[in-house]
């Protein structure tokens, strides 16, 4: 079973339905024990970084998420869920860094002035390195984005794809079985569905080898 973490950051109905369509066995939960027992975790979310961290903290979910990642269980952060994986965000103006989960080194930055923010619409993902998550997704495929901030890893080796929005930013990242994608696979039609199916296959592989 794959836990979709429901922590009050947006409507997860589309994510749940898309995962089901991709053949995944998913359930929505905000319960620590359920997350810790899951074979894999999906962390979606839209909205403010600071509030998201606070919502995870009050539900006691942070140690559970850390445990899943430390065990090497497959983990997929989507949109804000990708950004939360990093050390922190520059989201709160002038108040320094808002701490994140710190599972991937780097920080989350705002798009520079002059760009339309949020980036909203279809943009291309350009392959940096191969990974099972991207199987069957042609280089330069279009995915659906809605975001004002982007992740800036301090170690480039985690970058799977980049996207050009005036600046080039990390649109997919991976460290082992820990994945994060900035775009919305549940809104990216057939290409997004391919990525979800690939994550499902990664989870199946993990289950059969443990």
């Amino acid at each position: 079973m794959i836990a979709i973490v429901d922590y009050g950051m947006g409507n997860l109905r589309s994510v749940e339905k898309a995962c089901e369509r991709a053949g995944m066995d998913v359930f929505l939960t905000d319960d620590c024990a359920m997350v810790e027992q899951a074979d894999a975790v999906i962390l979606p979310g839209v909205g403010a970084f600071k509030r998201a961290m606070e919502n995870l903290r009050v539900r006691g979910l942070i140690p559970s998420l850390e445990k899943v990642v430390q065990d090497g269980r497959p983990f997929l952060g989507i949109c804000l869920g990708l950004q939360l994986l990093f050390d922190g965000s520059e989201e709160s103006f002038g108040q320094g860094l808002v701490p994140g989960l710190g599972l991937i080194p780097g920080r989350v930055r705002r798009f520079p002035p002059g760009l339309k923010v949020p980036q909203m619409g279809w943009n291309q993902i350009d392959a940096v390195r191969r990974d099972p998550l991207m199987m069957g997704v042609p280089d330069h495929s279009y995915m659906y984005f809605v975001h004002s901030y982007f992740a800036d890893p301090s170690d480039d080796s985690c970058i799977l794809t980049t996207t050009d929005y005036g600046i080039s930013f990390t649109s997919s990242a991976a460290v082992g079985n820990l994945y994060g994608i900035q775009y919305h696979p549940e809104k990216s039609s057939r290409m997004g569905m391919t990525i979800l199916r690939n994550f499902g296959a990664i989870v199946d592989d993990y289950i059969s080898s443990h």
């Binding site: 279809w122 279009y142 039609s189 057939r190 290409m191 569905m193």
Partner: peptide, 10 residues
């Protein structure tokens, strides 16, 4: 433009 072929049966 996102090519129409990137839609398709899901």
């Amino acid at each position: 433009i996102r090519p129409a072929e990137q839609g398709g049966r899901i």
